[in-house]
Nucleic acid binder design. Structure first.
Lengths: 173, 173
DNA sequence: GCAATTTATTTTATACTTAAAATAATATGG
DNA sequence: CCATATTATTTTAAGTATAAAATAAATTGC
């Protein structure tokens, strides 16, 4: 009597939540699950098709929108990662010849990171394919679903900013 | 004439998207932004208040729901991270005395990871506080917003599973 | 002008994460 | 039984990430 393989309901982060858990927590776990799922797909595809990584692609994408380049601090803010992280990432991309550092004329502490021609070319090759992956993964959502989701996530983003756990605005009574 | 500090529209991952970008891409960037924002808040708060990390907390949370413990593979699946990652995480938590490994009786390859009394106690201390952070960050959303968001993310999750970039189900014509 | 502060970046130490290879044990099919 | 395949985990190497300290340059307030 072989046990029938049930279509397992996907063991993921949400498994840690029960029906009796608060909606807030279940929502957070589901958000994290979606984000992780997409991230892992994109990461794997970037590696297979372009032999690169998501952080590198992200950095190139940021630079592509900034013709004059960005400082380390700006990159850090936009990519929402630490300063030190950007230093290492930029180092590797410079080694690969995809980005270059240009010392700032006005401020000798900072430099502008920008795409080299090779970096621009690499990004232009990858970005339409990348866009295709994203489109494909969202294929199950209607236009209206996406618009609603976009709008609700906008609300969430605002809410998180306003109620940040760390942001102590403790000086006003 | 001091310049008035405008409420800067937050430079984050979405900065890389333009109005003319496809909705799919903008949605993905916004999703990632929300996820990163919450994650960073929780990580920082866990460090400040409990001197621990998000991955460790996550692992404890998974175990709390599994009284008999979980195998490394089960943990890997539920936390959506690689096998090797779990090995290292579990090692550190064993060092801290919060979890223990029990060799499986039936299968000498595998072991069951479970909470020690100290681990259970630590988790029970942290989890209500953690829940409070999540509630707080979602404070700007109505109950209906949350339900809608939960439902839409469910659709998205399903869509990503069905249209995974890597999952080649190439054997059926 | 100059001390004190702030800002931009890098460095350091540690932790987390992955993919791939290695190890070891179990299951399977003759 | 035994060769083969599969499964569970660990190891390895490289990369990603953080927080905190260090460095260095710019700004500010006398």
């Amino acid at each position: 009597m072989s046990e029938v393989r049930q279509p397992v309901p996907a063991n993921d982060r949400e498994t840690a939540a029960n029906r009796d858990d608060k909606l807030e927590l279940r929502l957070w776990l589901r958000l994290l699950t979606c984000s992780s799922l997409i991230e892992q797909n994109v990461r794997g595809a970037l590696r297979l098709q372009f032999d690169t990584t998501l952080p590198r692609f992200d950095l190139l994408a940021q630079l592509d929108r900034a013709p004059d380049g960005l400082t380390m601090s700006e990159l850090s803010a936009r990519m929402m990662v630490s300063n030190g992280n950007i230093t290492g990432l930029a180092d590797r991309l410079v080694e690969e010849g995809l980005v270059k550092r240009t010392p700032s004329q006005r401020d000798r502490r900072s430099s502008h990171i920008s795409l080299t021609p090779a970096g621009k070319k690499a990004f232009d090759t990858m970005t339409p394919v990348h866009e295709g992956w994203i489109d494909r993964m969202m294929g199950g959502l209607s236009r209206q679903d996406m618009q609603q989701l976009f709008q609700l996530l906008g609300k969430l983003k605002q809410s998180v900013h306003q109620n940040a756990v760390e942001a102590d605005q403790g000086d006003k009574p």
